[in-house]
């Protein structure tokens, strides 16, 4: 899948620089729709303590193959011009972006639907783990729902 990019970002995903990256590709005039999704670290409360940050780890050697395998089962992928997934590694404070998905396609319906489906793929099918840090001494392994 030459049109699928998975990129790891150390720390928070900087959205401003991400949008600049998109701007550089605005010469792709066959693209009529670009949908994005940003996942933000939320200050949940766990056992009375507020999450300060999430520390992400991943099995990076396996992740691209897992993403490709998951995308093969999604029919709409064939209509995508390009799919980009950016995910943080390391610590990301609350309020910052930890995941950014960009889907480009000819038509808006494809881009929007596919973007939503890829969010689920990243959360449940890619070997990534989040550890919610609530204090210097307490942390909890995140569980996706």
């Amino acid at each position: 899948m030459d049109n699928v990019i998975l990129e790891w970002v150390q720390g928070p995903v900087q959205l401003v620089s991400m949008y600049e990256k998109i701007q550089q590709h605005s010469t792709h005039t066959e693209v009529g729709a670009l949908a994005t999704f940003a996942g933000i670290v939320r200050a949940d409360t766990i056992q009375g303590q507020v999450v300060q940050s999430i520390r992400f780890t991943a099995y990076t050697d396996m992740a691209m193959a897992a993403l490709s395998a998951a995308l093969k089962s999604i029919e709409l992928v064939k209509e995508a011009h390009r799919i980009q997934v950016f995910h943080s590694l390391g610590e990301v404070p609350t309020g910052a972006c930890c995941m950014w998905i960009v889907v480009e396609s000819k038509r808006r319906v494809t881009a929007l639907q596919l973007c939503a489906e890829i969010v689920e793929v990243v959360k449940f099918q890619l070997p990534i783990w989040g550890e919610e840090i609530v204090s210097d001494t307490h942390r909890y392994w995140k569980e996706n729902t």
């Binding site: 991943a58 990534i128 996706n144």
Partner: peptide
């Protein structure tokens, strides 16, 4: 071998 508990990215 890699031991992989349920994923929790995003």
């Amino acid at each position: 071998l890699a031991l992989l508990p349920p994923y929790s990215g995003g």
